[in-house]
Design a protein around this nucleic acid. Structure first.
Lengths: 208, 208
DNA sequence: GTCTATAAATCGATAGAC
DNA sequence: GTCTATCGATTTATAGAC
């Protein structure tokens, strides 16, 4: 009951302790990046919030770039978990609207994503490749979802492939306006307004 | 013809020389911020590209923050000049589409705006107030323009006030996707697709 | 108005003890 | 695995000569 204790309890094993440390560091990093942006966030500040020294942090993430990639992957897993909760194959505008609702309760997470994605367009940014491939994948997923929900022809003569980048753009653009001015921008309502534009049977002509 | 020369030529006066210096510094700053982002852009690098020392630069812009605000104001003047060229009171979706066309030829300028606007949502950012009031003003201008062009009722039951933030969001969101992947994202075409969604007479129902 | 020199702080990262 | 100590580079900004 002494030396063997390290590997005894399920939540106290070496592997589990390591995972907890990493999780604490990632949470601290995500918060600070959301507050201050990636460049202004120092490893020392992340370490302090996570409750260890800068060098203890560097044992888990050897460089600042490694930490950044881990933060992005963690955020992606959160998104995926939210989508998966709605059931497999059910990705539609309803699920997306619920994701926007969820985002409206988590400004820190949204800020992390907004700041990092825009920052990534600069030269030699460590997250550039991540966001480039992520946007490509999201556009393709949106096109598939739009086709499943509305079929081949959308209002304005659009195809699902041409509407997909607009859907992604609206989500990102609304996040920016909402982060800057949450009192004036009702992000969830605005997103549903856009969804109404995409629904082919929503036009009001001929009703009066 | 010696000491008095400084103020002799119309384009060589003290005032004019000062203005030229400031313009050169602003242009260098805008380029570097577009390439590297605001945080990674050092005053020394801006000074070098503008052809003077870092301390010479600080004579014209006493802090980095002063320089940033000047860059934002200069970019706004460029935008205004582009819009004004179309004639007074003519702000409509056509003019906006032309602005998007113009932006598609100036990735550096677009990058400056995209990176700075997203960066501004972080705590105590020097450009925060600028973007907050700018977005508010742009939304209001868009609502006025949409009302003038389409009247009170838009597709999906939207009002001009509710469509305005969507219009702004699409422009910003498309810029981000286009900056990351210009080969895959046709920004001008995608924006015109969105305009087609807003035009009440564009629906295809009843035509077949 | 522009320069040289330098202050003062902070950064990411390494070395080595425990 | 976490710590103390510290290096070396870079940053913004100031002081003062010309």
């Amino acid at each position: 009951m002494t030396a063997q204790d390290h590997g005894a309890r399920p939540s106290g094993g070496r592997q589990a302790q390591r995972a907890e440390r990493r999780a604490a560091i990632l949470e601290a990093a995500m918060e600070l990046i959301a507050e201050r942006g990636y460049r202004r966030t120092s490893l020392a500040a992340v370490a302090e919030r996570a409750g260890l020294s800068q060098q203890g942090l560097l044992h888990h993430f050897p460089t600042k770039e490694h930490l950044l990639v881990a933060v992005l992957e963690a955020r992606d897993r959160w998104d995926l978990a939210s989508s998966a909760a709605a059931g497999p194959g059910s990705l539609g505008t309803d699920t997306l609207a619920q994701l926007v609702d969820y985002n409206a309760t988590r400004p820190g997470i949204v800020q992390t994503y907004t700041v990092l994605s825009a920052d990534s367009v600069t030269e030699d940014h460590p997250a550039r490749a991540f966001f480039e491939s992520r946007f490509r994948a999201v556009r393709e997923a949106m096109a598939v979802a739009l086709r499943a929900e509305f079929g081949e022809s959308l209002p304005g003569g659009l195809t699902p492939e041409r509407a997909a980048p607009l859907l992604v753009a609206v989500m990102d653009g609304l996040q920016l306006q909402w982060l800057l001015d949450p009192e004036q921008v009702d992000m969830p309502a605005a997103f549903r307004d856009f969804v109404a534009l995409l629904a082919p049977a929503t036009g009001r002509r001929g009703e009066d």
